[in-house]
Design a protein around this nucleic acid. Structure first.
Lengths: 334, 334
DNA sequence: TTGTATGCGTTATCAC
DNA sequence: GTGATAACGCATACAA
């Protein structure tokens, strides 16, 4: 059932059918009614491929995440999908993993589908800070469609980003721990992404401004898995720390498990702060103080930016930032 | 840059370019090389809209989930996306929520994008068992493209499904609890979906075969939220139960929290079994015995079915089933 | 082995 | 208001 069939059945030309379908006002009420009747009866919908070919868009956004089973990313996608859909855009989803090469490849794959814009979820896409060249693939993509990076700042023409103040949040938390007399604060991370670097910077700033040394032994890189974290900490028996800040709740929960295994009481012997305020923070015992990085706001802003950019508006701010919130629960005493 | 440009630059016809791009063997090595050179130099890729218009496919699968921030569904999507991508198919994602009307609407939306097949993740799509009509929208969709339901059995032409043996798993777990002397086993669920009904049936079967009555007061429907579950159980102070089985880990963790609030010891005073074996099961304390419903296998099978169906193979089994696995941790003593 | 011509189903630009 | 017709960029049947 195509536009020719409908035209024939309604006794009009395809141009008129097209006008009716697209709500043109240059059609008489009478013919509009007649055409609509046929359309309804036959359940006709325009062929999106033909539309796409003519208009050069199928109203889709490409969304790329490294790992969709990560709680942070899946909730981000949830917000993005809803927002985009409300504006008539569908999402083509890609899961790229964390390998640089694979990320660039996936970007190409999405571009080849002629998406209208590309949303990269997670600071993993913003490189590890080794070199500006790491993010060249983003700027190349941006030559074709606008690119929106969530939680990672990338510079470039047609590249937009929305982040939350990870550095400030981590600085504030570290400060609070120091104020409560914590002497040796362990920093746990699983990556060197933009946001991980920001968090570490905040941690170091707080130490420095308090006149404390930044000790390499207190900065651990590890896998973001609960048991792996617990076991690693158990191995470092003589590391001697009285607080833990982690760049994701998973590692923080691992620290909680470590405390249980060592018979340490929380928060008296050990303060622990997680990140992302995921359901893990509520599941563990004692429940985890965690930093809420405002996924919903960031996603909403990104969708807004997406729509405005596609409408051809020149947006004032290419880089949007929002403050994190510290959600205090029972693993801290500040 | 289109096929005409490339043809002109390479000094051949568009047919030849098309042949080269599609790897036809009826092109001489020499011209193939020449054309490829131009293609590489210009970075040409075929316009997928034009391809789609001609071939009536863009090699996309529609994937619909009620809630992508649910751990079970996001991990399912992760497996599906990878599997489909390995076969050259991309995913258009929809998040429908749990409302019947919205689910049907989203199915229409995906169909309008001319997907090659539709994958519905989660038994929510299989109806609440009230009437066969609930799933009519699935059979209607199946008139256009093959539909694959994950974790919910739906009958119909061109409808396929993959489930795990929820009924058997729940029966086995309940049996084990009874064998260990548990007298009053609480059943917690947040829905009446196909899989929830299967689980309840298994629970009831185990009770019945042990000569125990199935008590309505011991079957609770509630929201799948940790604190909400805990608080609800605290309200029912005189309910008197010595075991809990839940249709999702979230509620089971809520029961763990309830035990902590009441000062009950686990597993001595209370046995608890969760479902889906998510990261929540590992995050909570004590760690949760949970049922692994084999998401990866089910998704792999679904992708396989998807590909075979699209290739026009007649598949022997429209309904695939795999057994769950009970993952014993520290909230049970069987 | 290569080229020509046509169809795919729209939208949009013209005439009328 | 309405209709004829030209793009849009590809794959492919058919000719050469």
């Amino acid at each position: 059932m195509n536009i020719y069939d409908i035209a024939k059945m309604a006794g009009v030309s395809i141009a008129t059918v097209s006008r009716v379908v697209n709500g043109s006002d240059k059609v008489s009420e009478k013919t509009k009614r007649r055409v609509m009747e046929v359309i309804e009866k036959e359940g006709y919908t325009p062929n999106v491929f033909a539309q796409g070919l003519g208009l050069n868009t199928m109203h889709t956004a490409g969304i790329l995440v490294p790992d969709i089973s990560d709680l942070y990313m899946s909730s981000a996608i949830s917000f993005l999908e809803e927002g985009l859909r409300n504006h008539g855009y569908n999402c083509i989803l890609g899961c790229s993993g964390f390998r640089q090469e694979s990320m660039a490849q996936h970007v190409q794959m999405l571009l080849s589908k002629k998406i209208d814009g590309l949303i990269l979820v997670g600071s993993a896409y913003a490189g590890n800070g080794a070199s500006e060249r790491e993010t060249d693939y983003i700027r190349e993509a941006a030559a074709q469609v606008p690119v929106f990076v969530i939680n990672g700042a990338v510079q470039g023409e047609n590249v937009f980003s929305a982040v939350c103040g990870d550095r400030e949040a981590m600085r504030e938390v570290t400060r609070a721990l120091l104020r409560r007399g914590r002497k040796r604060i362990l920093f746990l991370t699983d990556s060197e992404s933009y946001s991980a670097r920001e968090k570490m910077a905040g941690y170091e700033e707080a130490l420095t401004e308090a006149g404390r040394p930044v000790l390499g032994e207190l900065k651990l890189k590890l896998r973001n898995r609960i048991h792996a974290t617990r076991d690693l900490l158990l191995q470092y028996r003589n590391l001697d720390f009285d607080a833990v800040v982690a760049t994701d709740d998973g590692m923080a929960v691992g620290a909680v498990k470590y405390a249980a295994a060592r018979g340490l009481s929380i928060p008296e012997d050990l303060n622990i702060v997680g990140y992302n305020n995921s359901s893990l923070a509520v599941a563990c015992e004692p429940e985890l103080t965690s930093i809420d990085n405002r996924t919903e706001e960031i996603c909403r802003e990104t969708v807004d930016l997406f729509m405005r950019t596609l409408r051809g508006e020149t947006v004032p701010e290419k880089h949007f930032s929002v403050s994190c919130r510290i959600v205090k629960r029972n693993t801290t005493d500040f």
